[in-house]
Design a protein around this nucleic acid. Structure first.
Lengths: 215, 215
DNA sequence: GAACGAGTCAACACGGTGTTGAGAAACGGC
DNA sequence: GCCGTTTCTCAACACCGTGTTGACTCGTTC
């Protein structure tokens, strides 16, 4: 429980001994496989255990719960996403359009590569506090980086003043999150997967570099 | 199951006979009361039944499930939200800023008035297809109205051309949805409740009336 | 070869959902 | 008043998913 910020502590229960490592990996692999064609809520601990060739009680030897398996999987994706950092220094060089396109595309590709996991993540977020905290951390980091980039653009005179950069960053990232979820999940109105990055980029550029009419 | 578009059919089971009406209302009231201080997943059918002064099997006489109660409550809010329609003709008269501010404020106030329900809604959407469909319908209607307003603004020369109006409408509404959820729920980074409408409005105006830099 | 710890699982306890079948209570017709 | 029908109610049940317990196996180590 808690200590949401702590890292590098393995999510698996106790010390995962070498010999049982395969089992642990088998559970993780099973989870990702099953998530590919049904939501987390439709997968039981028994499904995971059987899929990994063990009994249900044995599952609990490796993970504290179904959600712990998901968190373990998410930790990896987060590490991946963290690596793909937004380089604010890139904007003046590559030009705003290309710089921001790259940032949005990276975000998009990272989650598209783990579509099933992304959807399960969103699902678990509403019921599991640890998942919620992990996402909040990721979202916060990402927004902060965007806010810094917006401020840098304003400082060098490339972007006009406006609402607090932090607020704009939070809103634009909220849009990306929700829009990509809609696009990936396919339920409800969404922008087509082939054009969503372009339209998102246009909204970002107009929001950061444009101005509202004087009325 | 299914037939998601059908309306005006009461969500309660069978024909709600006059004498049992109080019970049905008691269940709905209990649900809204309990949702005010804990999430839907932490409320059992038994809680609802006891809260309404009946036994669990009796609950099933009135509603097919816990989710049916939520849907019944949502139907009302949806009716309320539908009434608060975006009047596209208002924009040329009141001016873009005031016209759009009114639309966003209405949306904001409608859901803020039913904060607990809004959060429960978001939670149930990930597991219940009917809730998902109902939301998709609301979101679709709203986006369509916004798209029409954007097109009207472009037609009268007030807004410059850009990405398909429908795509912009979907993205901007996605932003509003996610941002308001974050603001109401209070977990994760969010824009403060007192300023969120202003910042949202600024993003909308810049997106609809502004242009991106030529690079 | 005894002691130990990692790994395994049958069996259990518990809590939630949704159903059944047997009635009580309300009401209209005669 | 009494009878039949419809509405309403709930004890008891069947089922499923979670998480725990305690005993047992098996490889390692001294």
């Amino acid at each position: 429980m808690s200590v949401p910020g702590s890292d590098t502590v393995p999510r698996g229960r106790r010390v995962p001994r070498p010999s049982g490592d395969d089992r642990e990996l088998a559970i993780l692999a099973t989870a990702e496989r099953l998530l590919a064609d049904r939501p987390l809520s439709a997968i039981s601990v028994d499904d995971l255990a059987r899929g990994a060739g063990i009994s249900r009680p044995t599952f609990y030897f490796y993970f504290a719960s179904k959600d712990a398996v998901l968190l373990s999987l998410l930790d990896r994706v987060v590490a991946e996403a963290d690596a793909a950092t937004l380089d604010a220094a890139l904007l003046p060089v590559a030009g705003p359009r290309e710089g921001w396109r790259q940032a949005i595309t990276t975000y998009f590709e990272t989650f598209r590569a783990h579509r099933a996991l992304t959807l399960a993540w969103a699902e678990a977020r509403s019921t599991n506090a640890e998942v919620r905290d992990l996402w909040a951390r990721v979202f916060h980091d990402w927004s902060q980086r965007c806010a810094a980039a917006i401020e840098a653009e304003r400082a060098r005179g490339a972007a006009p003043p406006g609402p607090p950069a932090r607020d704009l960053a939070v809103l634009l990232n909220s849009m990306n999150e929700r829009a990509l979820y809609a696009t990936f999940s396919g339920d409800g109105p969404a922008v087509d997967e082939s054009t969503v990055v372009d339209v998102l980029l246009e909204v970002w550029l107009r929001t950061i570099y444009g101005t509202a009419p004087a009325d």
